[in-house]
Write a protein that binds this DNA or RNA. Structure first.
Lengths: 229, 229
DNA sequence: CAGTGGTCTAGACCACACG
DNA sequence: GTGTGGTCTAGACCACTGA
């Protein structure tokens, strides 16, 4: 199918394709799903199926450690609340199970397309200078928390990547349907010998290639395609 | 379903589950597929469905650069051939389109389970000391290539992670069915100002959490579970 | 061999985009 | 309203595991 259609852009609809290949539509859809998982196709309900452009490389790890909210940060703060985090987050932060932490929501946009949604958990101990009157909520408060974070000296950070599926909220933010495959990047920021913040970022798996640059500057464009079996 | 069955280990079969929830088996399977994608379930044909253990964290990036095949390397060389690589690999290596390169196959095993399969492409210029009589093929030759690689001074490395699906060969090596979701880690090793080697490693997405440690030593066990929407 | 998950079919209806 | 992809059904058969 790829060789037959890659020249064009728009594919025939699923019913026609199924008929052309002599299979049931469910079977045809299974093949399309795999191709979409590999980033070769894009499908939009009510619109159609198109050949996807190469995945965009998004940098998620730099050789220089930097707090979220630094000058060159690509994330856009959206909101901030004070809430008790999920148990797993509390554990990673080594905070009490019922301690409320600042929860910053941010989003990341590339080429006009949303690529990631993030939840950043910041224990209150990490931002002692934050005054209640700064801002009650909203983007202003998110920026205030990030600003206070810069005062700590960052000692290190560690990240993990795993496969997940988009929750309803994330799905809407990423312009996908719930259950869509996502790459979840969890990053622990270390300062003063403890976890000073925890970021859980959800990237669209269909359009993103996460890069962990390590050579300092040399950017390489590389097709995600792999050897045929 | 999770809260109902997480205590036990083995789930009822799909036909029974579908009947219990009053849905068709295809619908039930769709739900199981998503849970498997998230690493919560493991399904094996002919056996059954079980609640999955937490994902294992596998380190794929270290703060110290190191060549493949270093003393502490966790990969096991399996084979080595001299072949013309796929076009995309040749491009990343900045080698001619028709230049044959050493192609080392390696596998990675953790806790007795295969977690990744790798193809390591090494241009002949990167291992000038390799003599033809060293070993014609097989693991011995793979080790010879890796040994010669150590002679170069590694200047940096850059990695990218993206979602893919297992080819037939990879699937067998990873003990999965073709099409299973995998995390593809592409790493370029830089020496003497050029790409001296390219690694394409395929990790099982269902069982692996890829860690990019950056703090040097502190290992943290962390549940992959995320906030409920 | 029986039981499991994996694949496939033929059809119906739903949710959404766009003219 | 029409056409698209997304969901669901009820049933059949296949491939594999393990007793």
């Amino acid at each position: 199918m790829e060789s037959e259609f890659s020249v064009g852009e728009i594919l025939p609809n699923e019913r026609d394709l199924a008929a052309r290949f002599g299979v049931a539509r469910a079977t045809l859809r299974q093949a399309l799903e795999q191709l979409e998982l590999e980033g070769r196709l894009q499908r939009r309900r009510g619109v159609g199926t198109t050949v996807a452009p190469p995945r965009v490389g998004v940098a998620v790890g730099t050789e220089q450690h930097a707090w979220p909210g630094s000058a060159d940060d690509v994330w856009q703060p959206a909101d901030c609340t004070l809430a008790v985090p999920p148990a797993t987050v509390a554990q990673a932060l080594e905070s009490g199970r019922d301690d409320a932490v600042h929860t910053v929501r941010r989003s990341r946009v590339t080429h006009g397309q949303p690529v990631a949604a993030e939840l950043l958990y910041v224990p209150r101990e990490s931002v002692p200078g934050l005054t209640a009157i700064d801002a009650p909520s909203g983007p202003a408060r998110a920026r205030a928390v990030l600003r206070e974070l810069q005062h700590l000296e960052l000692e290190g950070q560690e990240s993990a990547v795993e496969l997940g599926s988009a929750r309803a909220g994330e799905a809407k933010e990423l312009d996908r349907l719930p259950g869509a495959p996502v790459l979840v990047v969890t990053t622990r920021y270390i300062a003063e010998g403890r976890a000073a913040a925890l970021s859980v970022a959800t990237y669209r798996a269909d359009t993103c290639r996460l890069t962990f640059g390590d050579t300092g500057g040399v950017v390489v464009h590389q097709d995600p395609e792999r050897r045929a079996s």
